[in-house]
């Protein structure tokens, strides 16, 4: 009998992976910001963070000013904010609930407990002195999740859709990370090349756990274009956009060949095209084109690929019944 995976399960595992990856990336960015945004530009760093998911308007609707405490609460414990960590893990757990027939007890129980713990966090947990411990625990919980998944998830289609979601989300998150710092830094021409400037770009690296990896891989020291090149184009750093897109492209190819799924040509074209671009371009060309514009272009390609995956695999046999929500970010 051919291997069968319900379209709804494929959608759920894809988004389960994305939500956990999203929570981990958010924890990384918040952690770095909380540690390194204590300087004279501190307020601006917290404000620019709100551009991460274009959240400025929603934040302004319920808050007066983007203080560190307000932004942290908004992104960590505010369950009315769909882009908060508690919401992301809540959505991951809802998807896991759908996937209970497929995933291990360990995977489910861990997410269940992680989610329950996040629900108990209050402002006390966000006190400045406790932040590092808090974000470490969130990151570790996300990594425990990926470890349990790696150790228990059957290596059939499910596992490929899971990793496809993880790498598409990671590529997207890394472009957003670069994009917010791009906004922070460039308007202040006077600061470019000063210690603050370098410190901010180093903070970007640390957000992506790339500080020492960078120092090992790049001999020229921390420069803005060096960091951008490393996080965008490095072929072997596991959080770079190029690495993540190449992985996503490879995983989709396996689904379409070894697992004999006929659909997905459009998504394969999107991911393959992006992979080639990232392999061909160098950072100077990208900066000449405009870094922000390029990051925007990458994000749009990733969104298009996600939509294509949705049409090809997550809602097959259309005509009768309800259409599944493809972009759960908007749901």
């Amino acid at each position: 009998m051919p291997e069968i995976l319900l379209a709804r399960y494929a959608l759920a595992i894809f988004w389960l992976a994305r939500y956990v990856e999203r929570a981990e990336n958010l924890a990384r960015i918040l952690d770095t910001n909380a540690t390194f945004a204590r300087d004279r530009q501190g307020a601006q760093h917290w404000h620019s963070l709100l551009e991460l998911h274009s959240d400025q308007e929603r934040f302004a609707a319920t808050h007066t000013s983007p203080t560190a405490a307000a932004v942290l609460r908004f992104y960590v414990t505010d369950d009315s904010n769909p882009t908060s960590i508690v919401s992301a893990i809540g959505m991951a757990r809802e998807n896991a609930r759908i996937l209970r027939p497929l995933i291990s007890n360990e995977m489910w129980a861990h997410l269940n407990v992680f989610n329950k713990w996040l629900q108990t966090l209050d402002d006390q947990a966000l006190a400045p002195g406790d932040l590092t411990r808090l974000f470490n625990r969130i990151k570790e919980s996300c990594q425990t999740h990926t470890g349990i998944t790696d150790g228990t998830l059957h290596r059939d289609q499910v596992s490929y859709f899971y990793r496809l979601g993880r790498y598409i989300e990671r590529a997207d998150a890394t472009t957003r990370l670069l994009d917010i710092k791009y906004h922070t830094l460039l308007p202040h021409v006077a600061d470019v090349g000063t210690p603050i400037d370098i410190g901010q770009w180093d903070a970007v690296l640390r957000s992506a756990a790339g500080h020492y990896a960078y120092l090992r891989a790049v001999s020229t020291g921390v420069t803005p274009s060096g960091v951008a090149a490393f996080l965008l184009l490095h072929p072997r750093f596991p959080r770079s956009v190029a690495f993540s897109v190449a992985e996503a492209d490879r995983l989709l190819a396996v689904l379409r060949t070894r697992h004999e799924l006929a659909g997905g040509a459009a998504a394969a074209a999107s991911l393959g095209g992006l992979r080639n671009e990232l392999a061909m371009l160098d950072i100077q060309q990208i900066i000449a084109r405009g870094l922000h514009e390029f990051l925007d272009h990458v994000q749009k390609r990733l969104i298009a690929a996600t939509d294509d995956l949705g049409e090809a695999f997550f809602d097959t046999g259309t005509g009768v019944g309800s259409r599944v929500t493809l972009d759960q970010r908007q749901a």
Binding site: P2, I4, L5, L6, A7, R8, A10, Q157, F161, L255, H259, E260, L261, A262, G263, F313, F314, D315, T316, G317
Partner: peptide
């Protein structure tokens, strides 16, 4: 009766 799967109807 068919179920909707990633590979089409089964």
């Amino acid at each position: 009766v068919y179920m909707r799967t990633t590979g089409g109807l089964a």
